[in-house]
Each structure stands twice: as C-alpha cells, then as structure tokens.
Write a protein that binds this DNA or RNA. Structure first.
Length: 573
RNA sequence: GCCCUUGUAGCUUAAUGGAUAGAGUACUGGUCUUCGGAACCAGUGAUGGGGGUUCGAUUCCCUUCAGGGGCACCA
C-alpha cells in the first residue's frame, strides 16, 4: 500500500511540474490523522516558494483525480501534512489476506537467496552461564528469526572459550579439591565448576605464586602436555557444555555451528604471524596491531602475548576466517556481544579488513547492554551468584505459583509455566532497545499485566479460545446463514493488523527486535478493546462471520510476531 | 587524559527530522449477572541545563552537567 501511495504522490508532483522531491510516507501516531501521511508539501514548499498548506491543497486536488478504491479520502492537516484514510474495503481485504497467508504472514523477500550467519550467546566452558548470556541469547535468537523471516538462509553459531586463563583458573582449583561427585546433576556439577573458577580467579589476583602456577597450567592446557590436567579439562569441558545444552533447550535455541577458541587459536595465530610486519608488529615481546595508525579512534591491541600465546584478538581473526571458509558463499556474518567488546571489535575488524578487504562489508557487529537485577527476592538468593539458569527457574517458579488456583493437571502446569516463564524473561529483555542496559525485575515481568510477555500470550490464548468455542456455537444455530454483514466502522485493531509486515521489515533494517515487541503490545491492547466492546458469539451479532475472521487474523499475527521474539503461544494458560 | 556511549512522567521505557512526546507500572476514579476479569475505560504526570541549524528538534551540531564502557599482553 505504501508503494502505491508513493506512486500516486509522484504522479501528482509530475503533473504539478515538481521534480526531485525527497519526502517520506509514514503512519501517523494518532489514527485521527489518517492511516498514512506524507510531508511532501512541507518539503517542497521552499523550492516552490509557496505556503506549505497551499501546496498541500494543490497536491490533494491532483491526488483526488484518480484515487484507488483502497483510499477513502485525502485531507490536508496541521502545518501541511497530506493524510490518507484507507477504505473499509482495504481493511476487509487485508484481514482476508492475513488469514490466507497464515504462518507466512509477515515474511518478506528482502534477503532472498542470501546466506547469513548469526553468532550469539558465547558462554565459556568452566564459567557459569550468567544472566548476560541469557540476554545475548534472547537477542541473538530474535535477530536470527527476523533475518530468517526476511528470506535469508540463516545459520546459528555459538563461539565458546574452552581455552585461556579462565580455564586455567578453574582447573587450578579443581586440582586441589578434585572433580565432583558422580551423583550430582549436570546443573549441580556445572555450578561446582563455576564456583571453582571464581575461587581460582580470586587467588590469581591476590597470590603471586598461585598466579605463576595458573599461568603454567594455562600453557599446559594449550600444549596438552600433562595427563592429569587433560583429564580434568576433558571432564569439565563436557559437563559445562552439556549444562549449556539444557538451557538452550528451554530457551528454544538450536545452533548449527559450535566454534571453540581452542580450534581458532592456531588458525588465528598462523594468520597473524603470516602478516608480520606489514600488518602486525613486534612490541615488548608481544605481537600487536597499531589500530591508531589507520584510524585515530582505534588503539593498539595485543594479538600474541609475550609468552607466545594467541590472545582473544588473534582467535577472533581465526574465527572470522573460519566462518567464511566453512560457508564460502556467506553474504553476511553478524556477531552479537556485550557493549564492552565494542571498541576492541572495531580494532579486530580493522585488522581483518586489511588482510581480506572484501570481508569488511560482510561483517556486522551488534552490541547489547548489560542486564542488571532490580533489588528484590531474586538478587539475594542464598548469597550465590545469580546464574542464567537460576533466573530462568525463578521466573518459571513464579508463574507456577500464580497458576495454583487454575484447574490444570501437573503436566499442563509444568508445560505452561515453562513457556510463560521463558516468555516473561525474553520479553523483558526484548521490549527495549538492545543497546541500553536493562533492569530485570522478576516480579514485574511475570505480572501478566500490561507490557509483558505473558500479557501478549494471554491475549492470544483468549482469542484462540473464542475461535475454538465458535465451532460449537455455529454448529446448529438458525442464524448462521445471515451473519455476513460488514461493520461500517473500522476498528483500531484492523488499523494495526495490516501494519505487521511493515514492522517486521523495519525491524530487519535496523536489526532491532524491540519494534516488534512495541507493536505487539499495541496490537494486543487494541484487540482487548475490541474484545471488551464486542460480544462476538451472540445471536444478535450480524457481523459474526467478519468478527471471527478478525479474531483469526489477530491470533495469527500475534503468534507470528511472538515467534519472531522467540516466544511460543501455549494452548491455554 | 583520550575515544565511544547513554540521560524522556515517581519507576521501567517508545518515538525513519514531523502534528497534542506513545506505552506499561504506581496513584485516583469508573465499567461488567465474563465469547477466559490475568480484562476494559477515564484522569494526574516527562525530553538533564544552555546555545545553534531547520518551516519544524527527543532526534542533527556545539557547549556544560551526570552516569556507563574502552584505552597492551583477560575474554
């Protein structure tokens, strides 16, 4: 529809001999100002040396010469906006279109034939899966789905640090206390290892001798020269990776590739050494890259340290190269990490683009803020670190508690509390723009009210419930044949529904899931208003058939939209 | 010190340079013998300060104040 309006405006401008106008078409925030609006008159007023309102009226007259049936009227308003009001017929058709498209509603083909890899989550074996990883996963999964909806072949990748000082710190402590009891669950074993990491890390910072010992262990991890260390290493790596898989399962993420630092290290190191001295130089015994020589906003970073071991920077180069090597026709490689990696990534990407200039525009780094906890029950739990897993379980438990007075059996409660608990957490991450820090308040996110994942799920479930009930209702009613009237008035719900596909496109262009979240909340709210004002399954409702279509279109849109956020809609809740 | 980034109702936040800055929460008042009330409706309340560009600025530029991140062998 937007394209159609753009074409109409261009024709009108042509008839008025106005050329090269750069204007925009948008949805006014307030539906009183129409369904689409353009600023063309205000933009052109200056070059045409005419009052914007006068020009708007002129353009309006031109537009009215051949209005399509989808546009009911055109009006000039405010400082010179031209507003388009869509017709009853347009909305009726759009509702029909949504139902026909079904699960495909909202997809577009912007990236048709393209291959895109998205790297996200990136937890490290031997360290806890913390709330930052939860945030990264929710964002990365949603971005993957948005890209997928735009027609791309999507590849999900996870990059995990299975070597490096953090592993040595954990292993140092594990060597002292031994590997844990076989009877523990995977989650408990992983927590045990996480605790060892944190202890080892503290000792590393406070005790010079232990620091030396840990540095030695680190070297042995790289060259695999010590059987005892190798044994603990293999055990710990397996346990933590298995624990991560359990979390991915709950979150609904499935990765196609797992990349490991242990594999990337030699690849990256080789590439770095091959490019001495043209790109990398020796400095104080280390191999560094002087970013500031290429861009004053970059800085120097160490790629191979003075012990001869590759740092994260070198591994990152190995990773980037490996991605393009494994998927030769990769069109875009998106990496999502926390904001603290932003500056460093710019330097690494500069170095990569010097080695392979063609890769520069195929790499995109997206950063997200930190996740903090609001003060409350969750943050002081047993004095332990809040792991991603415990936060997730906390969210699910709170949902379960709320469901106590519902008549569901145990397996239903378990299933629903999992779906709703995950939704509460994901939505509170995805509702605001990814760049800024978020404050997670568990109580609020499972409140089920207003701006929350459960509220959206609840609204969808309610809609579905009407659809289910309608089957029974319509079965043998004498009124079923003459209920096909169309309401004259257009509801807000209809005015939101058709915009979904535009919102998805917008979200893709900016790679920002929160636009979908914001839209879905508005959509749900407009549905609830409609629901509150309309008795759909009633004998006297002459528009029942259309109203049911409207409910169906809403349900489909909400379901597709929530999918893009990585959220499922339960059958009931 | 240098570079990047963020300041919007009490709180959590939205807004490709557009119209009366949009929500949620909290607070106040109201609706309903519920197609699932975990709902709906109404009201109170915000762009850190100061300049500039523009027909028009939360958005762009400058300045100032206040947070956050980065700046050599961690990831």
């Amino acid at each position: 529809m937007k394209e159609q309006i753009e074409k109409l405006i261009k024709e009108a401008l042509k008839n008025l001999n106005i050329e090269d106008a750069v204007f925009s078409i948008e949805h006014p925030l307030d539906f009183n100002n129409g369904d689409y609006s353009t600023n063309v008159a205000m933009v052109c007023a200056k070059t045409q040396k005419i009052n914007p309102k006068e020009l708007a009226e002129k353009i309006k007259l031109e537009l009215e010469k051949n209005l399509p049936k989808e546009i009911a009227k055109v009006e000039v308003a405010g400082p010179g906006f031209i507003n388009f009001y869509l017709s009853r017929e347009f909305f009726t058709e759009s509702v029909k279109g949504i139902i026909e498209k079904g699960e495909d509603w909202g997809k577009n083909n912007i990236l048709e034939g393209k291959k895109v890899m998205v790297e996200y989550t990136d937890p490290n074996p031997f360290k806890p899966f913390h709330i930052g990883h939860l945030m990264a996963n929710a964002i990365g999964e949603s971005i993957s789905r948005i890209v997928e909806h735009s027609g791309a072949h999507i590849i999900r990748a996870n990059y995990q640090g299975d070597v490096g000082p953090h592993v040595a710190k954990a292993i140092y402590k594990l060597m002292k206390v031994g590997i844990s009891d076989e009877n523990l669950s995977i989650e408990e074993k992983a927590n045990y290892i996480g605790k060892c990491y944190s202890d080892g890390s503290n000792l590393y910072d406070t005790d010079e001798n232990i620091k030396k010992e840990i540095d030695e262990i680190n070297k042995k991890i790289y060259d695999k020269s010590n059987d005892g260390i190798n044994k603990i290493y293999d055990w710990g790596r397996e346990v933590t990776l298995e624990a991560f898989e359990e979390i991915y399962k709950i979150l609904g993420t499935k990765f196609d590739y797992y990349f490991f630092e242990s594999v990337m290290a030699p690849i990256g190191e080789k590439i770095v050494r091959e490019n001495i001295p043209n790109i990398f130089q020796e400095s104080d015994g280390a191999i560094v890259f002087h970013g500031e020589e290429y861009d004053e906003k970059l800085h120097t970073r160490v790629f191979i340290n003075s012990n001869g071991l590759p740092t994260y920077e070198a591994k990152e180069i190995g990773l980037a190269m490996t991605k393009f090597d494994k998927e030769k026709d990769l069109d875009l490689s998106i990496v999502t990490t926390a904001i603290e990696q932003g500056e460093y990534m710019k330097v690494v990407q500069k170095a990569i683009s010097l080695i392979h200039p063609e890769m520069e525009k195929k790499m995109k780094h997206i950063t997200h803020g930190m996740m903090k906890l609001a003060t409350g029950k969750m943050s002081s739990r047993k004095g332990n670190i809040i792991t991603g897993e415990s936060l997730l379980r906390g969210s699910m438990d709170m949902v379960k508690e709320k469901m106590n007075n519902r008549e569901f059996d145990d397996s239903e409660i378990k299933n629903i509390s999992e779906i709703v608990g995950v939704s509460a957490l994901k939505y509170s991450i995805l509702k605001s723009s990814i760049g800024s820090d978020i404050v997670y308040d568990a109580e609020k996110s499972v409140s089920f009210e207003g701006d929350s994942g459960p509220y959206l799920q609840y609204t969808a479930v309610r809609a579905n419930s009407i659809l289910e009930k309608s089957k029974e209702f319509l079965k043998d009613g004498p009124w079923r044949s003459h209920l096909n009237d169309r309401p004259l008035e257009v509801t807000e719900l209809e005015k939101y529904l058709y915009q979904f596909s535009e919102v998805v496109e917008h979200s893709y262009y900016l790679l920002e899931p929160h636009h979908i979240a914001t839209y879905l909340t508005e959509l749900a709210s407009s549905f609830n208003t409609f629901y509150g004002n309309t008795q759909i399954l009633a004998e006297e409702n002459k528009c029942m058939a259309y109203h049911l279509d409207l409910v169906k279109a809403f349900y489909q849109t909400m379901k597709n939209g929530l999918w893009l956020l990585g959220i499922e809609v339960p059958e009931k809740m």
